[in-house]
Design a protein around this nucleic acid. Sequence first.
DNA 1: CTTAAATTCTGAACAGTGTTAAGATATGCT
DNA 2: AGCATATCTTAACACTGTTCAGAATTTAAG
Lengths: 211, 211
Amino acid sequence: MSSSIAIQTKPERYHHGDLKNTLLEAARELANEIGVDNFTLREVARRANVSPAAPYHHFLDKQDLIRTLAIEAFRKLTTALEQAKQKKHSPLEQLEHIGIAYVMFAYEHHAEFRFMFRRELCAAAGEPDPLEVAGIDAQSVLYNTILEAQVVKKIMTSDAKNISLMLWSVVHGLSTILLESPISKTATAESAKKMARIVVQQAIQGILSKE
Amino acid sequence: MSSSIAIQTKPERYHHGDLKNTLLEAARELANEIGVDNFTLREVARRANVSPAAPYHHFLDKQDLIRTLAIEAFRKLTTALEQAKQKKHSPLEQLEHIGIAYVMFAYEHHAEFRFMFRRELCAAAGEPDPLEVAGIDAQSVLYNTILEAQVVKKIMTSDAKNISLMLWSVVHGLSTILLESPISKTATAESAKKMARIVVQQAIQGILSKE
DNA sequence: CTTAAATTCTGAACAGTGTTAAGATATGCT
DNA sequence: AGCATATCTTAACACTGTTCAGAATTTAAG
């Protein structure tokens, strides 16, 4: 058989070949188009030229599809944060860049970002939930940078966990405000970035030890 | 006819008497029970002992009902913040109390809080949208306190708008993290309050001028 | 008081949804 | 080759939001 690159060569095949990924991509597009609330599994199937029941051979149910999307999104966020954390900068500058990158990720992937944080997706309990792990991995980028900053310079007052929670809260809060409040109607990428910079810089000020 | 207090005296009346409020209350309960995603207008009607079409005589559609709920919730939030802002404290203490109150409001009214921030509810444009107004009113409690703090003591570095955005972001971020992340499974009212205090105190540190 | 108008509710219906079950079609293995 | 398995379709179920015609009730007008 041909490699997985040739997806659109023969679209009328009974077996799609790579339906799972096609569904995921269609789902991302749909969510970004019509929003998260009207998001429909049947429409996803429609866009993949497939019957409404087909997705159930690749996902347990609609929520499982969304869950998969959320996990992928967390991984993309993790790499985005790691990329923002350039080695050439000081830990404090890295913190600022990570914070801004978080907000920009939310702004540029609003639908996926909304899927990432839904109480309904939080697993019942126990077992290493992949979604939870992916979320912790993303947080670790921020957390580790804080640790590094503390080691290099004794610059932080409170302990790393509190600092992390606080910085995470600011950037996450600004992100959701930008997406879910009336601001979303007038916000642009530039204004979002500007707000992110201002807010993050202020927040970092709060964790510096006064000299 | 009797006063509006006697709601449950004659439950079999064709005309309910105060269906609109009954629907709103049933909706609040339902949302807090089964969450925001599975929230169903038909179930609301069912709980009000009324046909599925009855709500349409009091609300344009499901979204209009949710919108009404969100507006009410914003007003409740506003009074909660005003109550937290006790006159006896200094403006800075007031800021701290307001921030904590915000987080606790979210924790105690999770379903309503989620209804308050939904991109879908943001009106198309123009005209004084009551939801937007209610949101601004709530923000004003925080904003005015910042202004007062700046007047009493020249204690803030950045300007009030930036400070407000930053503080709003922290408390809003922590709120949604507490509600929508895996933390929600283990969080209690006490742990939430503790986190709120820590995070808000750190954030306020960031806006104090260094002496 | 009578009667017309307006309000509030019901019942039945429509399209659309998530999901399942039974069967058709293709793929992979031996 | 043939058999098991994975993948897809068709049909159906219960449920949803919403509309519409009409019944029950309240309000207002004569």
